[in-house]
């Protein structure tokens, strides 16, 4: 079996084992694309492994869109172990697409540091209990319903995830910055490209939760830092 040389394969027992943080970690290591190949729908050895994988990959791709990375850099394909030709076809199609998009970070105008920072924030977000929990509930929400017995449509789940991800990524970016040193709202706003009034609101929310505290003031600007 011959296929393009720019692919490095990593074997996992089941696509369900792949955590979103692994995908983001790969991007942090500089890969230009992540191709995930797993069993066909309904053919999972562990029954729901590839369904869980689809949910997690969908969330990661939404997250990539939010931080400004082309979501085509992540692709989830299905094939059975007997389909060598299909593997070659998928691998070649994917590398072709990645070549079209170019090296990672081309879609972000700012420098490499910004890309790294955003990926780190995204990784911190997906590693948090919140997102793990919510994404783990996705199938349940659609089939059985939530705690109130309300069932979600695909559209609703999409809206819901986008909303939570957008909030979560901003909060993690703010937390990463405040970890370094105390900053004012304006400092944070300039670093993460979020309007100051949005930053202020997130910081007020974080203070309410006891995550962030007031450190002092610098002239007319109050400075905030993470609660020890």
């Amino acid at each position: 079996m011959q296929y393009v040389p720019d692919i490095r394969t990593i074997r996992v027992m089941c696509t369900g084992r792949i955590d979103p943080s692994m995908i983001l970690e790969a991007f942090l290591h500089g890969v230009d694309g992540v191709l995930i190949l797993g069993c066909r729908e309904g053919e999972c050895h562990y029954v729901t492994g590839n369904i869980e994988a689809a949910n997690k990959i969908d969330m990661t791709s939404r997250l990539m869109k939010i931080i400004g990375i082309d979501s085509d850099r992540l692709y989830f394909g299905h094939l059975s172990s007997a389909e060598g030709a299909r593997f070659v076809e998928l691998a070649e199609g994917f590398t072709k697409r990645i070549r079209e998009i170019g090296p990672l970070g081309r879609e972000i105008k700012e420098d490499k540091e910004v890309l790294k920072f955003r990926l780190e924030a995204a990784k911190a977000a997906v590693e948090s209990e919140k997102l793990r929990w919510v994404i783990g509930k996705k199938t349940e929400f659609m089939d059985q319903g939530n705690k109130y017995g309300e069932r979600f449509t695909r559209h609703e789940i999409g809206r819901l995830l986008d909303g939570i991800l957008m909030d979560e990524i901003s909060v993690k970016e703010i937390q990463l910055l405040l970890q370094e040193r105390p900053l004012s709202v304006r400092d944070v706003s300039e670093r993460i490209d979020l309007p100051p009034h949005r930053v202020l609101r997130y910081i007020a929310g974080l203070r309410r939760k006891g995550v962030v505290r007031l450190e002092g003031t610098d002239g007319v600007s109050p400075l905030y830092s993470l609660q020890g």
Binding site: V185, R186, S221
Partner: peptide, 17 residues
Amino acid sequence: GPYGGMLIRPFDGEIPA
């Protein structure tokens, strides 16, 4: 209140003059 009693303005959280 939301800002812990600090008089700051809602746009950028700076103390107004």
